[in-house]
Amino acid sequence: MTIETLELDIRGQVCPSCLLLTLREVNNHHVALSEGRAILTVLVDSRDATSTIPAAVKNMGLAAQLDKIEDYYRVVIARPEERP
């Protein structure tokens, strides 16, 4: 099975817009993400978003891994079994 890699770059946005834009993207690809056919990488520089995005996607049954990359954050969202 090929896994589609999606990317959402919302650097420059602040919460709650970051969360809303991420949720919209997650909603658009929810089936593929839930079935493990896609992984969504969100690039964000709002510190608030590093707590709100993982908490919200966890409630939707997905997992998020957070990494600090220089002056921004990378949030990788995927099915829990295929946690990156």
Binding site: V14, P16, L19, L20, L23, N27, D48, T52, A56
Partner: peptide, 28 residues
Amino acid sequence: VGTRTLRPEELDDQSMVALDPIGIVATT
């Protein structure tokens, strides 16, 4: 959903409607 409020200075009324936050949160 655990985040703070949408302030008018960050997102004006027309942009807020265009973003459709209610639709996003409802689907979520």
